[in-house]
Amino acid sequence: MFYSQKHMLQIEGLHPPEIGHLLDLAESYVLLNRSGKAQRDLLRGRTLINLFFEDSTRTRTSFELAGKRLGADVINMSVSTSSVNKGETLLDTAWTLNAMHCDLLVVRHAQSGAPALLAQKVDAAVINAGDGTHEHPTQALLDALTIRRRKGRVEGLAVAICGDVLHSRVARSNIHLLTTLGCDVRLVGPPTLMPAEAERLGVRVFHDMKPGLEGADIVMMLRLQKERMAGGLVPSAREYFRFWGLDAEKLAYAKPDALVMHPGPMNRGVEIDSEVADDPARSLIKEQVEMGVAVRMAVLDTLSRRQARNEP
């Protein structure tokens, strides 16, 4: 077995063979899903709980579909953030889940490290579906799978991650995964949206799209939350789009066959122009969604097999 951990909490610390195993397995699920074959029974009799402390239709649905395709009993629990803002309450939740004999727990939480805390207290295998500004590991895996299928490889590619890196867990997971696989990773965005000492994560930092995108194979755009403008980090949407919004003119700084990605949901006209987002020749955005289900199936598969082996 390549993947050695009980949980899937973060990309940081994974080794290239572990990532390769997950991508290979996900690849096989892509084919299976496309062939429309009947549900497998790998997870029959197992309980998967989607525990979402933050709203996310897209990621929750993707995990739900992945679980059902593998035959699991899937339960969605949405917990309003207001009632759960203390660590103590989070642990109360953990004990409840243990009593329910949950096998696989998918967690999204606004606080960095919340899934890790749950993982210490629950019997289930925990899958981080996004925690604060820390990580979103399955998003990075699905991005890598999308890239690999279109470019034939991930290793050695030049990838520009653009926009609000400071608040992005997607960016952090991608930085770890892509640098682990030997990519040339650049971060591009205004200095006010760049995390401190980002260079020490093994990337190069640019504030100007032109040098940042030069020679890039992949341009990965990040979502700009509206509250960043209210918080004064960016003066206005029009200024943001002028300097950091991806349009055809800025995409031309990258390689002629560079591909565009976005984790969604997009702010059209803020971080990305529709002309680019909807161009089937350049945009991988729809493909990313399809890969999401396959990658989550691969993660559930891997963790449940490990669980089965360890059971007495």
């Binding site: 004064g232 003066p235 029009r238 002028r242 300097f243």
Partner: peptide, 14 residues
């Protein structure tokens, strides 16, 4: 800052 009011950044780039 907008209006030189000392509250939020003006559009420095533009």
């Amino acid at each position: 800052t907008r209006g030189c009011r000392g509250e939020e950044l003006a559009e420095l780039g533009l």
